[in-house]
């Protein structure tokens, strides 16, 4: 564990909490992409199957369970409890265009051709693009993202950016790297870059955020 990873994990956790609180307090999931949230739930489910096979640390297991739990609750709130407020008409990104190629890539490019390993690889690839329906939703409607949603996206983006710092650190300190995780992590971070720029130039100056289509 190093500082980049710890702060990255905490940022990841903060993102999930921000989104949950936003939905819960406003009793509405307007502006939130249910499709992105379903894909994140898939990411956690396929990656954290190792909860049953390997024990790393109490911290590791607790965080995995919390991520799974929070993501399930988020999906539940969007598709059941506050379904009436879900903006499905604007959440039109075709998820199969991401999931199918990502699944194919996971089968073709992996470290080891085994069930758990392919699912892990799938989760890494899927995570890197899972936010696209959310970004698409914000840009397509041309309507403003709520400031809270922007904070959520920022925290989620910072998490993967810090993980890149963590991988560089681990490469030099511990002498190893995971090519699949690094490439996917970089793709993921790049997808957030445009958003980061808008976030810093607009949200921090008190304006609302729009992503040009």
């Amino acid at each position: 564990m190093n500082i980049f990873r710890l702060v990255g994990d905490l940022s990841h956790l903060a993102a999930l909490i921000i989104l949950l609180l936003k939905i819960w307090k406003s009793r509405s999931c307007a502006g939130v992409s249910g499709k992105s949230q379903i894909m994140f739930a898939m990411v956690y489910m396929t990656r954290y199957l190792d909860l049953f096979t390997t024990f790393v640390s109490v911290y590791n297991s607790v965080m995995k369970v919390v991520f799974l739990l929070f993501s399930f609750v988020t999906v539940y709130l969007i598709y059941f409890k506050f379904k009436a407020t879900y903006d499905g008409n604007h959440d039109t990104f075709r998820v199969e265009f991401l999931v199918v190629p990502v699944a194919g890539l996971a089968v073709l490019v992996n470290h080891e051709f085994s069930f758990l390993e392919i699912l892990w690889t799938f989760s890494i690839y899927l995570e890197s693009v899972a936010i696209l329906p959310q970004l698409f939703m914000i840009s397509k409607t041309g309507c403003e993202a709520e400031t809270i949603t922007s904070h959520y996206l920022f925290a989620l983006g910072i998490y993967r950016a810090l993980y890149i710092a963590n991988w560089i650190f681990r490469y030099y300190m511990e002498g190893f790297f995971d090519f699949i995780a690094i490439v996917a992590g970089c793709v993921q971070t790049i997808l957030y870059c445009d958003f980061f720029y808008l976030y810093v130039t607009k949200v921090w100056k008190g304006k609302r955020l729009t992503i040009p289509a």
Binding site: V56, S57, W167, F176, D178, F179, A181
Partner: peptide, 10 residues
């Protein structure tokens, strides 16, 4: 087995 080491991450 180098690549398995990031499995201790989240």
């Amino acid at each position: 087995d180098v690549h398995h080491n990031v499995k201790d991450e989240l």
